[in-house]
Design a binder for these strands. Structure first.
Length: 757
DNA sequence: ATAAGTCATTTTTTT
DNA sequence: AATGACTTAT
């Protein structure tokens, strides 16, 4: 076992201690992934059947990477490991044994959007005040309940929860939970939290199933243990009960998912649950230089709740941490892009070595713009993922409905898109009937003749039902791609998108093409297996494809072949490392987020987040903040983040690259489906400088906010005044003449001749 | 029934 | 900046 030579003493111990309960506390950069990988490889070298090893990771990508590395050491056998995220592994098990809870094997997985849309529907049906009962709030309450393994009945019996709801004026949340759970069940659907809750119920109520998996999984391993919630922990405990060979790996200082129910309590209760737990601490950091490591320690020590641990490095002092002080967010973008450019020239970094990390996805824009100007390739992770785009969700809605007719959210989404004359009122009416008779919406539509609808509606609905049924028939004989393509064509979806010749319409059409290509690849993927060995996923049906994609995460689509600067949230950066890291938007209210400054716990989680951000850097760390920033269209003044003050100031090198304020320009027109249709969002080049003179005002086209939420495009007629206070008279086609103060108007010059820049 | 216009609300991170 | 609810025109 040559591969073990690369490990230090503690790492080796962690690898070899495969029996009994083990807890590995692994600081950032301590070689955690290597230990996990080698530990599994070691097990297999010891002759343990990979089918009997269950390794739960945080992202699919982490699992795939580990599997790949183990495969390099051990060989193809690694394919048979049970390795994946909690959600994907449990989904697989539930597909197998979920029938015992009354779920079909092709159950749909509702994403957050589906779940909230269903809740909204229920709130409406119940006639509750939607100002009080917001889908977000209700969803959060239900999600927390599920993560605590509380059924609707248990929720309503819990005096604490009930009195919480009553005092917040929302006494019906428990009832809504009950309704929601029922509707999901009827629709043959589980939301993300159900994958945990139902897994627990399955093990809890069906001893034979529990016994089967307890025996099957002889060795259990959990990565990112600090980010597991109560439900996950309880499931692990159940599964490990017979063999008690359970290894957990984590770092309490990197726990950043409390908002999702993760609790560090699990780390403490683990040692209580298994008193003979072997605890190993990996404290040497192999990643970063001293300034970075020490800064991280200085930051985290401000947290009261933490386990004592100090990471250290022998990589040498390294460079000081740069701090960029900027005026506005676009200055920040420019400063970072300039610096990236300079660093690349001077130190020969590749784009792949560089990452820009921020607190919220919305912050990416100014960096995208400045990087584009520098011609630096970049990739934005997260935000709206591919599968959440409207056009993708639309076509997938058809797939879902085809595979599972009961899927109410999918049905409601596609029933009148493309428009086929089945409007809102008709659907509402059918919904009322469905609810009264405790049937699914589909059952009502499929038997529409039994109900009181006018003949036009009956015909249209019948046509729709017949169409979907024909898709379902195809499923049995055709592969995923053929069915998908047929659906796209015969629903008119492809035609609809193809007809839209705007820039965005084209992009949408391309997205659909990309999706179809993905499905094609999926349906042809390893159909032939080596040695006839039974693999875990042979199913190449459309249903299998849906299961495959429903649990993909933002981090999973990796794009390493392209050399590009990576832009992502700090959350998404967990587990990654870069030579050169820019943590941007370091302002109070943003990082720490204004939403997370209500309690000490909140603030400490934000601090751990900052800790995670800082420790991603190997050699160079830059922190940037802007003194003014737009929020809801208003310029706001910002204080530098309180976290900056927690670092020893001798480590910092402040570069106060503050420029004078410029007139701030916002890009973009509006695009809307309903309400002020402006589908096209042109690519504006928006430089408006103080010396804007417009020698020939007639030819300067100007876009400005004409009225609230409406942009107009017009030509400048005349220009008076000097400096920032110029007044332009602009002729708009629609709005006639208007005078605008350049200083205040959100104004942009359109360059029509090179819009495709 | 649908498309388009008006008005109000909004506030993070993600499996 | 971008949604959703509501209104109005076709």
């Amino acid at each position: 076992m040559d591969f073990l030579k690369e490990l230090n003493e503690i790492q080796l111990e962690a690898v070899k201690q495969i029996e009994g309960p083990v807890m590995i506390m692994a600081g950032p950069g301590s070689g955690k992934t290597r230990v996990l990988t080698y530990r599994i490889a070691y097990m297999m070298e010891c002759g343990i059947d990979p089918f009997r090893i269950l390794a739960l990771t945080f992202t699919n990508k982490a699992a795939a990477e580990m599997r790949h590395r183990i495969q390099e050491i051990i060989g193809l056998e690694a394919k048979n490991l049970w390795m994946g995220t909690f959600h994907s592994i449990f989904a697989r098990i539930l597909r197998y044994d979920g029938d015992k809870l009354g779920y079909p094997s092709n159950f749909t997985i509702y994403d957050v959007q589906d779940a909230k849309s269903l809740l909204k529907q229920i709130i409406k049906e119940e006639g509750l005040n939607d100002k009080l009962y917001k889908p977000n709030t209700v969803y959060f309450r239900i999600s927390s309940a599920k993560n605590s393994l509380l059924s609707p009945a248990a929720y309503q019996a819990d005096t604490n929860l009930v009195s919480d709801d009553e005092s917040s004026g929302r006494p019906k949340i428990g009832y809504l939970y009950e309704k929601y759970a029922k509707r999901c069940f009827q629709a043959g659907a589980m939301d993300f939290d159900d994958l945990l809750l139902k897994m627990y119920e399955l093990l809890d109520k069906h001893p034979e199933v529990l016994y089967k998996y307890q025996n099957k999984f002889q060795f259990l391993m959990v990565d990112e243990f600090q980010d597991t919630n109560y439900a996950q922990y309880e499931i692990i405990k159940k599964l490990a009960a017979i063999h008690e060979n359970i290894g957990v790996v984590g770092d309490d200082a990197q726990s950043i998912y409390a908002f999702r129910g993760a609790t560090i309590e699990n780390i403490l209760s683990f040692q209580k649950e298994y008193p003979d737990t072997k605890v190993l601490k990996l404290e040497q950091n192999y990643r970063s230089t001293e300034h970075i490591v020490n800064a991280a320690n200085e930051i985290i020590q401000n947290n009261k709740s933490q386990l004592a641990k100090t990471i250290w490095t022998d990589k040498g002092e390294g460079e000081k941490i740069q701090v960029f002080k900027c005026m506005t967010d676009s200055d920040e973008g420019r400063a970072v892009a300039d610096n990236i450019h300079e660093q690349k020239l001077r130190y020969h970094y590749k784009n792949n070595d560089i990452a820009i990390l921020y607190r919220t996805n919305a912050q990416s824009r100014s960096f995208e713009e400045s990087l584009r100007k520098h011609n630096i390739p970049y990739k934005v992770y997260g935000g709206m993922s591919f599968y959440q785009r409207k056009e993708i969700k639309d076509i997938i809605g058809y797939f879902r409905l085809t595979v599972n007719h009961a899927d109410e959210e999918a049905l409601r989404r596609v029933i009148n898109y493309p428009t086929r004359g089945i409007g809102k009122t008709t659907v509402e009416k059918a919904m009322v009937i469905a609810n009264q008779q405790e049937k699914t919406l589909w059952q009502v539509l499929a038997n529409i003749g039994m109900y009181n609808f006018n003949s036009r509606q009956k015909t249209l609905i019948n046509q729709f039902v017949i169409m979907v049924k024909s898709f379902a028939t195809m499923l049995e004989t055709q592969n995923a791609y053929d069915v998908a393509f047929h659906i796209g064509k015969s629903t008119g979806l492809l035609r609809e998108l193809h007809g839209d010749k705007s820039i965005e319409g084209l992009a949408r059409f391309e997205n659909i093409q990309e999706l179809l290509n993905g499905i094609k690849e999926f349906s042809e993927r390893d159909v032939v297996e080596e040695e006839g060995e039974e693999t875990q996923d042979q199913d190449r049906s459309l249903g299998a494809y849906l299961q495959d994609i429903s649990l993909l995460t933002n981090q999973d689509d990796d794009d390493n072949e392209n050399d590009s600067v990576k832009l992502m949230t700090v959350h998404a950066a967990k587990g990654l490392e870069f030579a050169c890291v820019y943590v941007v938007g370091m302002e109070d209210q943003l990082f720490p987020s204004m939403m997370s400054m209500n309690s000490r716990e909140d603030l400490e989680e934000e601090r751990r987040l900052f800790y995670v951000a800082v420790t991603r850097a190997k050699e160079k760390l830059t922190l940037a903040f802007a003194l003014s920033r737009y929020r809801f269209g208003q310029l706001q003044y910002c204080e530098p983040s309180r976290f900056l003050k927690e670092i020893d100031q001798n480590r910092l090198e402040v570069k106060g690259n503050v420029t004078k304020p410029r007139s701030e320009i916002l890009g973009g027109g509006l695009k809307r489906k309903s309400g002020g249709l402006l589908k096209k969002k042109p690519d504006y080049e928006h430089h408006i400088s103080e010396d804007f003179t417009a020698d020939d005002p007639q030819n300067v086209q100007v876009g400005m906010e004409v009225e609230h939420n409406r942009f107009g495009v017009g030509k400048v007629q005349s220009l008076e005044g000097v400096g920032q206070n110029k007044i332009a008279t602009v002729h708009f086609d629609a709005a006639g003449q208007k005078k605008i103060m350049l200083k205040f108007a959100k104004l942009m010059i359109l360059r029509n001749n090179n819009m495709d820049d």
